[in-house]
Amino acid sequence: MDFFDFVTSTVALIGFPLLLFLLSFLWIPKAASGNTSRKKTAPEAGGAWPIIGHLRLLGEPQPPHITFANMTDKYGTIFTIKLGVQRALVVSSWETAKECLTINDKAFATRPKLLSAKILTYNYAMITSAPYGPYWRQVRKFATIELLSNH
């Protein structure tokens, strides 16, 4: 009986405040920080679940392009969705897509720097995780000429 009392009191004293602390991050509004020098970002589509984001919308009976068309009608021609915990930009007008792929191509060509990619790919040394730059161009040229050609 004494051990049971010890466990319940330990859970009550440590577990409950820890749970409240972790849950407080879900309900604190981001705009309450008062930071007025925030970067402008595209609006995020509503309805994202905490861990899976908007992935449940892509698994509906209707095709994903119909889902994106409905979201475009609601949020505009450019918006963000969450694929898991990562944010993805959705562009549905050809003018904006052309601007993203010609004028701002360097900003869109690079990959996110994730800790897992850094560890698994030897400090971003593999072509699949290397950031856009001279090293990536050299590795791409090598892979195209030596690995993917009939030469």
Results as ranks from 00 to 15, higher is better:
residue 5 D to I: 15
residue 114 L to C: 00
residue 105 D to P: 00
residue 75 Y to N: 12
residue 84 G to H: 14
residue 47 G to L: 05
residue 136 W to L: 12
residue 73 D to L: 10
residue 61 P to R: 10
residue 128 T to R: 11
residue 88 A to E: 15
residue 91 V to N: 03
residue 48 A to I: 00
residue 81 I to F: 07
residue 90 V to P: 09
residue 149 S to P: 06
residue 129 S to E: 09
residue 64 P to D: 04
residue 79 F to A: 05
residue 124 Y to N: 09
residue 93 S to C: 04
residue 19 L to T: 01
residue 38 R to S: 13
residue 6 F to Y: 00
residue 142 F to V: 07
residue 57 L to F: 14
residue 74 K to T: 10
residue 95 E to Q: 06
residue 94 W to G: 02
residue 8 T to V: 11
residue 79 F to M: 05
residue 15 G to M: 07
residue 117 A to Q: 11
residue 40 K to R: 14
residue 143 A to D: 13
residue 84 G to L: 11
residue 51 I to C: 08
residue 147 L to F: 01
residue 78 I to C: 12
residue 32 A to T: 11
residue 110 T to H: 06
residue 82 K to A: 10
residue 42 A to Y: 05
residue 116 S to I: 15
residue 93 S to P: 05
residue 77 T to A: 07
residue 149 S to F: 00
residue 9 S to Y: 00
residue 20 L to Y: 11
residue 25 F to H: 13
residue 1 M to W: 11
residue 15 G to H: 04
residue 136 W to I: 03
residue 127 I to A: 13
residue 1 M to H: 12
residue 37 S to A: 15
residue 3 F to Q: 08
residue 64 P to T: 03
residue 68 F to Y: 15
residue 49 W to D: 10
residue 9 S to T: 11
residue 89 L to Y: 05
residue 89 L to D: 02
residue 150 N to I: 07
residue 79 F to R: 02
residue 3 F to C: 10
residue 103 I to P: 05
residue 88 A to D: 06
residue 66 I to L: 04
residue 101 L to R: 12
residue 58 L to H: 13
residue 26 L to S: 10
residue 38 R to P: 03
residue 88 A to P: 11
residue 122 Y to E: 01
residue 57 L to A: 12
residue 28 I to N: 14
residue 78 I to L: 06
residue 58 L to K: 06
residue 133 G to W: 01
residue 126 M to V: 08
residue 95 E to C: 04
residue 102 T to M: 09
residue 10 T to V: 15
residue 126 M to K: 04
residue 109 A to T: 07
residue 32 A to I: 09
residue 46 G to P: 03
residue 130 A to D: 13
residue 111 R to Q: 12
residue 18 L to C: 07
residue 85 V to W: 08
residue 101 L to Y: 09
residue 11 V to P: 00
